[in-house]
Design a protein around this nucleic acid. Structure first.
Lengths: 205, 205
DNA sequence: ATTTACATACATTCATGTATGTTTGTATTA
DNA sequence: TAATACAAACATACATGAATGTATGTAAAT
């Protein structure tokens, strides 16, 4: 009803994003309606439509707030990787640990890895997500090219294939971790072991 | 309008499933409505509701028709694996190839790997899919226990962890293959190479 | 005074589920 | 074997609810 101060408005915006993140995680993205989000944030859809154009905009804003910085950091780190095997392994494991412990980031990841189908949609969100995926894939490619040049990975294997392989492995692990199906996969507990299975078999120190 | 013979009814049932599979693949499961399915099958929702209780029932019927047999075959084969490394690798690669070339099965897989979010839903479909996942995971566990007992995998690593690792890898590869994001991952072309990266690094002949 | 930051109200569309109607295949009976 | 009853295999119609988007109202900050 009453107009809020600019700080208050920013606060409700964050409350909307918090509500969205929580709902996306607990009931899924597709099952979450704008009314759910607004209600849980203690406002009406009017407020939501003031801050966001639609649901896709909420999703992208969530990414910007919670995942953009960590994502950029990881990409940058990977791109700066020298061909040091031990360092790379350490880096991956610490980054995974940090990711798993960042609740907001994990919610964003869950959203991306599990929550978005949208094939033909050709929406802005679609290309938005595609570009983030591409950034990660590319940074892994350059990292593995470095390792390849330094002779830390089997030289008879295409470094791009290795990058694809590891990227698939990472996504698969996160998938298992996030899926409700199997409760026995817990990366917080077994992440290092599982990563080592791939890393130590492929990359030398 | 008119009543059909029993064979005709079975035909429309299959047409409904075909339509559902096509739509699930091209527009996604969540975006596909019962009306879409019925229209594409050349009938009305009345026919669909005659054959299926709801959308979940359609999904499960699709699995039964297209994926149940291959799935059971793979599970059985894995469970019967002796600790022969070379044989296991060959088996995996041939099974993946057969899977990729089975269009109907791939549609079902896409549905399962990409198309179903449904977390809290606690539906029959949810537990249905969970049980198939469990069957696959379990069969990989027994296979890797055999390989472990035969000394074909690093004996200092828990065979269950190896099974989880490979299962994650497989799911990740299929994910990359199916996702619209990256067109450059094609398992039909690179599947053997990518599988070998993991298999040859972990399993000895 | 004007614009911000919402709440409220409205219009519309769409998806689901169910109820009912209709035709014809099929079994039953005489 | 022909008439009849029943049920299968749908189509049609309806009732309902939910979600979206937009338009409008409004109180306070600036």
């Amino acid at each position: 009803m009453a107009r809020k101060t600019k700080a208050d408005a920013q606060k409700t915006l964050n409350q909307l994003l918090d509500a969205a993140a929580w709902l996306f995680q607990t009931q899924g993205v597709n099952e979450t309606t704008l009314n759910h989000i607004a209600s849980r944030a203690g406002v009406t859809r009017g407020a939501l439509y003031w801050h966001f154009a639609n649901k896709d905009a909420v999703i992208m804003a969530l990414w910007q707030r919670d995942a953009a910085a960590p994502h950029a950091s990881i990409v940058k780190t990977l791109n700066n990787t020298r061909g040091n095997g031990r360092e790379f392994k350490q880096l991956i494991k610490s980054q995974l640990g940090a990711t798993l412990n960042d609740a907001a980031l994990m919610q964003a990841l869950r959203m991306i890895l599990l929550g978005v189908e949208r094939l033909e949609n050709d929406s802005e969100l679609q290309s938005f997500l595609a570009s983030r995926h591409q950034q990660m894939r590319d940074s892994f490619k350059t990292a593995f090219k470095q390792l390849h040049a330094a002779g830390k990975v089997p030289t008879d294997t295409n470094p791009e294939a290795l990058a694809t392989s590891f990227w698939a492995y990472l996504k698969g692990l996160l998938q298992l971790h996030l899926e409700p199906y199997n409760q026995d996969v817990d990366l917080l507990r077994d992440g290092d072991v599982l990563l080592d299975i791939w890393l130590n078999s492929i990359i030398s120190d």
